[in-house]
Design a protein around this nucleic acid. Structure first.
Length: 525
RNA sequence: GGCGGGGUAGCUCAGCGGUAGAGCAGAGGAAUCAUAAUCCUUUGGUCGGGGGUUCAAAUCCCUCCCUCGCUACCA
């Protein structure tokens, strides 16, 4: 049976600065989803990467006295490094400065032109030379001397007309509205769909898609004084990565259309309006889903360097490790909404759920098996109702519930489900008290410990997408073979074989113990 | 201004017409296998204000207040 394909992407990150926590959050979300789908029997392709063109990058490079490419190489490396230390399982890391992407972009441009959707005209507007930006009427005020200035920066603006290519976005207004109507899940969460719909209903203007004021970009075929507007270039990454249009490796045929574009809420419009319009013009099928996640806040505020409340991905992993960091971010915040994170919140969550609940469950069970069952999977007797109840809850039932949450990208809810299962196992162990059975009914003790080992196997399996390394350790400790770790192995039909020898148990989720220095740091935060 | 979220226990949030819920935090107890972890019980809310519909409203309608987002071409 051939596996069903599943294509998931993050946004590509703009390389004007090294990664911050938001980048980490997004790529972790995508990774958790990708890993889940792989384990659930899908043929997954997971793409992430960097967006490297545009005026901002050119300026940044200049100010650091570097060539744009050298500058990009440097920053892109920090993103690749982050993917590494966060344990991200992407299949490709695309960079928009790579030759294959440029080729695709030029080819797309030619196709859009051939489709009659690109034309040359003038872009006109109020421009601030100092800010190198155009401003709308609502962003400007008139000074006493009668000159218009930008309200925010206070710089003078002048009326500028610049030659530019345009994309006939206006021609797609009705088609886009039809799309949102006929495919209500196209934009998620649903309140984002409302925003986009009302935006499109206001009427779409054609989109200026080339620039002549700088040259760090992909040159427009046949008119090299223009470079493509970075957003057009950036969006194309989702298909250039698959080899469009040549499709030498058949990736396009296999994985397109994309199942989920996972992006930040700030760029929903680009993905829900511009991108489908471009695809329509190319005659390509549209992505199934665009999911805009929220932002991470701390103390209800945006993180900012000047306030000094920034939590960097590197610092996070240094303190908690990759697994626990992934867990904390996925658990603490409802995906799709903004969420508050802080060191104390994350520490509390990791300790309560990973260390105390799940970690300690594994430890207390395995150490009893190690001491009392000769270090082998115990031999169960006849299972009682309580045993069946726990196994059902933590087996198929948990998988079905977790899968349901993944369909909605509700990672936090999925984890809640898993924690609840571990909780039930802790209640079971207390109620059954195998340490007492050891003296009164050793056979029953074996059964109880077997049921617990089996529960731990199920938990280890379902935890893999979130905490891959620790989950692997758990599965190793209950003697699950590496090729028996897909979700089809969850549940009774693939239960542990009694008498399988087990390695000596060791802790998987260490408690975070606050040191004085950290406590002091938190006081100031 | 227009459109759309949200305002529920100390904290984070669920419920969205039928006697106020979960987790965490707080209090009391049990147990001792375990990462002093676990388990049980429990305190705590006039569900933003006001009005209306209904036998019945956190839940529907109106209105007001607060808060957040969107309202195009830096990315």
């Amino acid at each position: 049976m051939t596996k069903q394909p599943f294509y998931i992407t993050t946004a590509i990150s703009y390389v004007n600065a090294p990664p911050h926590i938001g980048h980490a959050y997004e790529v972790i979300g995508a990774d958790v989803m990708a890993r889940f789908k792989r384990l659930d029997g899908f043929d997954v392709y997971f793409l992430t990467g960097t967006d490297e063109h545009g005026q901002k990058v050119q300026k940044m490079a200049q100010s650091k006295d570097k060539t744009p490419q050298a500058f990009c190489d440097e920053i892109a490396a920090t993103f690749q490094d982050m993917a590494d230390y966060l344990n991200i399982s992407n299949d490709q890391f695309i960079r928009t400065t790579q030759e294959s992407h440029k080729e695709t972009s030029r080819s797309v441009w030619e196709k859009l032109t051939a489709a009659g959707d690109i034309y040359l005209n003038k872009y006109a507007g109020w421009y601030s030379v100092r800010d190198e930006a155009y401003y709308g009427e609502d962003e400007m005020t008139t000074r006493e001397d009668g000159k218009k200035i930008c309200t925010a920066t206070g710089t003078e603006v002048e009326w500028i007309e610049e030659e530019s290519y345009f994309f006939k976005l206006s021609a797609y207004e009705q088609k886009l509205l039809d799309l949102y109507e006929s495919q209500p899940d196209f934009i998620q969460p649903s309140f984002r769909r409302n925003e986009v719909t009302s935006f499109v209903k206001q009427g779409l203007k054609d989109l200026s898609i080339s620039r002549t004021s700088f040259d760090w970009g992909i040159k427009v075929p046949g008119d090299e004084k223009h470079v493509m507007y970075v957003w057009v270039d950036a969006l194309i990454n989702y298909i250039s990565a698959l080899g469009y249009p040549a499709d030498k490796d058949g990736l396009m045929k296999k994985y397109w259309p994309c199942d989920v574009h996972l992006i930040g809420k700030d760029i929903v419009r680009f993905h829900a309006v511009y991108w489908p319009a471009i695809l329509m013009s190319l005659g390509l099928p549209l992505p199934k889903r665009v999911f805009g996640h929220g932002f991470l806040l701390t103390g209800g505020n945006k993180m900012s360097k000047s306030v000094g409340n920034v939590i960097s991905p590197r610092a996070l992993v240094d303190k908690f490790g990759a697994d626990s960091s992934r867990y904390a971010l996925m658990r603490e915040v409802t995906f799709g909404q903004d969420g508050d994170i802080s060191w104390p919140l994350m520490t509390a969550r990791i300790n309560a759920e990973l260390a105390n609940n799940i970690g300690n469950l594994v430890q207390r069970t395995l150490s009893q098996i190690n001491k009392n069952c000769d270090g082998k999977v115990p031999q169960p007797g006849i299972l009682e109702d309580v045993d069946h109840a726990l196994l059902t809850h933590t087996g198929q039932e948990m998988l079905i519930n977790v899968r349901g949450e993944f369909e909605k990208l509700q990672f936090s809810r999925a984890l809640e489900e898993i924690v609840r299962a571990a909780n039930a196992a802790n209640a079971y162990i207390d109620e059954q008290a195998p340490w007492t059975l050891k003296k009164t009914d050793p056979a029953r003790m074996q059964t109880v410990l077997y049921v617990l080992a089996e529960t731990i196997r199920n938990l280890g399996l379902i935890l893999q997408p979130f905490v891959p390394v620790a989950a692997y350790k758990i599965l190793d400790q209950v003697g699950v073979a590496p090729d028996q770790r897909d979700f089809v192995y969850i549940g009774a039909q693939h239960a542990l074989q009694p008498a399988t020898p087990l390695p000596k148990p060791e802790g998987v989720f260490p408690r975070i113990v606050e040191e004085e220095a950290e406590a002091a740091q938190e006081k100031t935060a």
